[in-house]
Design a protein around this nucleic acid. Sequence first.
DNA 1: CGCGGCCCGTGACATTTGTCCTGCCGAACT
DNA 2: AGTTCGGCAGGACAAATGTCACGGGCCGCG
Lengths: 205, 205
Amino acid sequence: MTDRPIRVLLAEDQGMLRGALALLLGMEDDIEVVAQVGAGDTILDAALAHRPDVALLDIELPGKSGLDAAADLRARVPDCRVLILTTFGRPGYLRRAMEAGATGFLVKDGPVEELAAAIRRVLADETVVDPALATAALSAGPNPLTTRESDALKASADGATVADIATRLHLSESTVRNYLSSAIGKTGTRNRTEALREARRQGWL
Amino acid sequence: MTDRPIRVLLAEDQGMLRGALALLLGMEDDIEVVAQVGAGDTILDAALAHRPDVALLDIELPGKSGLDAAADLRARVPDCRVLILTTFGRPGYLRRAMEAGATGFLVKDGPVEELAAAIRRVLADETVVDPALATAALSAGPNPLTTRESDALKASADGATVADIATRLHLSESTVRNYLSSAIGKTGTRNRTEALREARRQGWL
DNA sequence: CGCGGCCCGTGACATTTGTCCTGCCGAACT
DNA sequence: AGTTCGGCAGGACAAATGTCACGGGCCGCG
């Protein structure tokens, strides 16, 4: 096996984890980390410049979500497989990752040893997903929130009042209250805060 | 330098980061990772069993906060230096870490290379803290919230209603509203959600 | 001792939030 | 052509939230 090494792009905002993973992956003799980025909106450029075989993407990233970046990669760098690496195994994240064309989905718990193995399997076009998480994602059903309901929920995250949200979204206060009320109903919760938590838990935001 | 290696205890809940750091630190020839734990309430036992020279502690841990664990260690394993490793450089965290007897305070941004260096410096009883963060912590002043105000804020975190909080804290609803109102005043915010965010940002919870 | 701080509680009040109903518009599908 | 769904908005109402003024008790400090 003296093939050319697997070229990996690493996108992760936490500097220490990014550095540690890069060092560890670099020590595998069949893996080479050709690019490291800490922001979502630099992923595509880095991939175009370095042509990786596998992109290892965190989801929560500054600038642009790893899921959105995954969709970009599928369109512009189709030879590059996408492996999502995320803190939370939210059902909605997994669903969206698959729709965005990801080949694998790993959570940041679980041993580091999994990582290199997953990279090799993904390169062979094997789908790598935790089975328990997969069934959870299936049974959870799709995101019931409309675009604007999600917007209103997101905008309410930092404790903004209805008036604040209305300004931010260029809407009337009545409309905002309607969206929030509807989101509360769909999540089966009692107020915005609970609705926001539940929507996040499901990976709907 | 063929001294006996520095014995390190590693407390971090995220499996992948914990594993990666353990491997990297283990590759330094003067460092040996003698224990790894993923929960705060197992730190003390592990330290008593393995007698590390340095304990590398995350703050947000299941079971018990790394800050509380630090205080335990100072009391029961006084030869062990404490080095806090945390995601967020909140002023209040740094202050509390120092009061709990920590010798160093690192954030998870910044390069991995810092880590081994910090461990060696901490062992030599050098205080290691990012200077910018240190001045921020000083200028921020101490935590103005009383115990009960903090309790009420924490209990409101998941979207609980006043009635819920009152039940959880064995208080009357009026009292809860007073505490929340007071916390909102002290944080200079407009509602609980903002107050909670601000209190967290300052590291007051 | 008086003073201040924290704890706990009540009642009244204004504001905000959440619900429900109504309506209009455009796009998509049948 | 009709129906459904999403976006947008207004009004009316009940409930939750936040504010304020006011009590009491306890403890520590000068």
